[in-house]
Structures are given as C-alpha cells and as structure tokens.
Design a protein around this nucleic acid. Structure first.
Lengths: 234, 234
DNA sequence: CCAGCTTATGATGCATGCATGAAGGGCGTC
DNA sequence: GACGCCCTTCATGCATGCATCATAAGCTGG
C-alpha cells in the first residue's frame, strides 16, 4: 500500500490545542473538576452541547478523552457519569505521585539548571512569607507551583504529561486545601520543601529523590486522614 | 441545577471495552503499532472507516484518543499522522519505565503474594529453558510477561494503567526484539531477573525496587544503542 | 399490595452531508 | 527557468437525523 507522508514540519506545537480559545476538552474537564457536577451525576451530551454551543459530536469526542483520563465513566448506551475515585484509587494515585515526583526531583538535581533553582528558591521564600502572614490561599498556590516547577524542571516532557494526567485524576486542588488546614503539617511540609531544594542544589539525585518521596508520602498520609469523604467507598 | 444520578452499579467493569468484539480503538492502535503505516504516514479517516466498516465518526473518536496516547499527531484541518518518537522521547519514556517498574517491584515485594511469586518463578524457569534451547522468540515473550506480571502483581490498577500507556508509546515489541539479539545482554538480563525475583521473595521493597531499576536501566541502555534508526531525529 | 410484563421515554451510537481550509499543481508573468 | 498566484482537490470539522437500547413508569393479573 502506498502511504501519503506528512509534509515536513519545522515548528513543533507543544501545546495541546490550537489557538483561538480554550479547547472544549479543557472546558468540560474544568466543569467536572470544579465540582459543578457531583460525583455520580450524568453529563448529558445534549446539555453540554448546548452549553458550549457546539453539536454533540465534538462533545462526544471530548467525553471519550475524559474517560481515558479516568475522570468520567461512560456506560454504553446509558450515559457519561462523573467518576468518584475510591479511597483505594487515591492511595494508588499517591503512590504514583511519589514515584513520579521522586523521579522529577532526581532528574532536576542531575541537571542542576540555575534558572530553575532560582525560581524554586524564590518560591520557598514567598512560601515562608505566606506562612508568616497566615495567607493560606497563597501558601497552597505556592506549594502547587513548587511541585509543578520541579516536574517541569526535570526536563522530561513525557514525565510531565503523565504527571499532568495523574494530577487531573487526583483533583489535587480540593485535597491540598484540606491539608493546608493543619498547622503542624504546614511546618513539616515547609521543612521538607527546603530539604528537597537543598538536595537539588547539592546536585544529589539520590538525596533529592529520597527527600521528595518522603515529602509526598507525608503529604499523602495527611491528605488521606484529612479527607473523610473518601471513606464512603471501598 | 438538578443532577441526574447514576443508578447503583454492583458489577464493576474492569476491562475497557464491552463484549462483542475488539474495540475499534485497539484495532487502530494495532494497525499503527504493527508498523502497517510507517511513521509520518497519513491515517485517512475515510480509509479507516471503510477498512473497519464503520463511519468516520467513531474513527475520529478513536484517533483523538490515540493522539492522547501519543501514538499519532492530529494536525487540524490536515489529517492524522503516525508519530515517530524522537530519540529523546525514547530516553524519557525509559526513565519513566524505570521509575514505574521500580515502584511495581517495590509494591509487589511488600505484598509478597504467593501466587504471583510462583508465576514469576515459573516464568524464569521457562526463560532459562528458552535461553538454553536458543528460542529467542519464546525468550522475548517470557521477558515481556515477566515485567507485566510484576506490574500486575503490584496490585495498583492506576500504576497498571499508566504503565500500559507508557508501553504503548514505547512500541515495546520492536525494541526488545533487538535487545534480545545480543547474547551477552541475555545472560546479564537473566541474572538481573533472578536478582529482582530474589528481592521480591525476600520481601525487600527497597532491594526489589533497586534491582528492578538497575535492570530496566541496563536494558534501556542496550535498547538505545541497538536501535540506530532512532538517531534520525533530535 | 406486589410481581411480572408492557410500553414510553430519553440518551446514546453512528451514518451522512455539507462547510471549511490546507496542500499541491498549473499557469502566466517576469 | 524561476517565482508567485489561483484553483482544484481532498481530508477534516461539525451539525443533524435516525436507529438502538437501557431505564423506569404504567398496567394487569394474582
């Protein structure tokens, strides 16, 4: 069979969506993650189509992708439902998170890129500041950025992509907000962050991985005991 | 807004596709991974639709999912093309593989389920046998099964799912087949497999993780030097 | 009142048609 | 001969219509 080849591409599209506006997939994902629809709720294609002013066809495509991400469950001939992660799945996802972030820290320590390091240092400075002023909102955001910066800084795009999927499934925002409520945890978490950064600065991949894994593990334990709603199932 | 909730489900569908036949997504994926279409080739929706005797709509849905898996690239208004992984991406994926399989070995060592262990022991026995008889085909298959058994045995479904994605992107078969060609590597690989199993039998999570990571790393190095075609890009 | 069957509803699954836009080839000019 | 413009071609992107089937309400007989 004769195959038609793609014309040479010189520009590498790194983002997932074309220009214009936010992709439909992202909009529906935000709807789900935002808690607009409670777990178990039906996501009617017709409703979404009308809501976003498109036809059902692109909506269906997006829903199938969300199913791959594990955010919704499509029951054939019945409908698409918001998926509620079981406690067991949360545990599984945190184990993965530990592994992936450990890898990221290790890779970043090996690379030891100066610009990333300064971003992280700045982040921890701001973070300490937020703790002192008691701005939990800012603290949560900075913690979030700290972790993402390390994953991005690992300079491993595939790792980044898998991490992104993972975090989507964890619906991170809601969990970490709870965690932040515990003052003792904040102090410990801050210490752990500094430890991670120190290891990265020392260009110690093993130490950085270890420190990061310890930190993620501690955080996940806290998140799991702090989130009683997760005990409903499994 | 009033939400329609899902009726209670008692049966948990663990497989991805309903009964009947193999899913369209899998069939197209096999077409791509099978090398039927060379990297860079266009996958015309109309052709696939005719080939699988469906309309373009379900084909489009499947292609969008394959894009998420990183196997194809969809250029808006142009077409869907088989993606050729760059060498850099291969390296990135192997780093991830190392991390994920390390986690799997660690979890399995912690669990220490007897039935999984006997399967692995049996696998290595058959594997040694295949080495002696020089049956490289069987050896490659057994190695494949060894790794998948450990990932399955980790009893972490989310890990399994991410691993599955990862392996799809690696188009494993073609790479490992090359690796098998090197006699020295086979001996080393066999030793490493035994080491991994021994650590798991000892219920030593750290040791198992370490052994597995060493093994995956060694294998990946071999695969990378054995695959000259990967040097074309990046 | 309840169990079993029938039927009505509503949502999905998919085929089809048309609009849109990107490549590539042809043609005319320089 | 080379460059640039136009136009044809073709594949996608999406809207729409209809068949299918799961679900639940209604109905009937016990």
């Amino acid at each position: 069979m004769h195959h038609k080849l793609a014309p040479m591409e010189d520009t590498l599209m790194v983002t997932t969506e074309a220009v214009g506006q936010e992709g439909l997939l992202d909009r529906i994902r935000r709807l789900v993650l935002g808690g607009e629809f409670p777990p178990g709720a039906l996501l009617p294609e017709a409703y979404l189509a009308q809501e976003f002013e498109v036809s059902r066809t692109p909506v269906r495509e997006a829903l199938k992708q969300l199913q791959q991400e594990g955010l919704v469950e499509i029951r054939p001939k019945v409908g698409t439902f918001v998926r509620e992660p079981t406690r067991r799945e949360i545990v599984e996802l945190f184990q993965l998170k530990e592994s992936l972030e450990g890898l990221a820290a290790s890779l970043l320590a090996r690379r030891g890129d100066a610009s990333e390091l300064s971003v992280l240092r700045r982040n921890l400075k701001d973070s300490d500041e937020a703790v002192l002023t008691g701005d939990k909102e800012a603290y949560a955001r900075l913690v979030h950025e700290f972790h993402w910066t390390i994953v991005r800084g690992s300079d491993n795009l595939k790792l980044y992509e898998h991490y992104e999927r993972l975090m989507n499934q964890l619906a991170y925002q809601r969990l970490v907000v709870r965690t932040v409520e515990h003052p003792g945890r904040i102090a410990a978490s801050t210490r752990e962050h500094h430890a991670v950064l120190e290891m990265i600065e020392n260009k110690d991949p093993f130490g950085a991985e270890s420190a990061m894994r310890n930190h993620v593990y501690a955080t996940s334990r806290e998140a799991l005991v702090t989130e009683p709603a997760l005990d409903r199932r499994s």
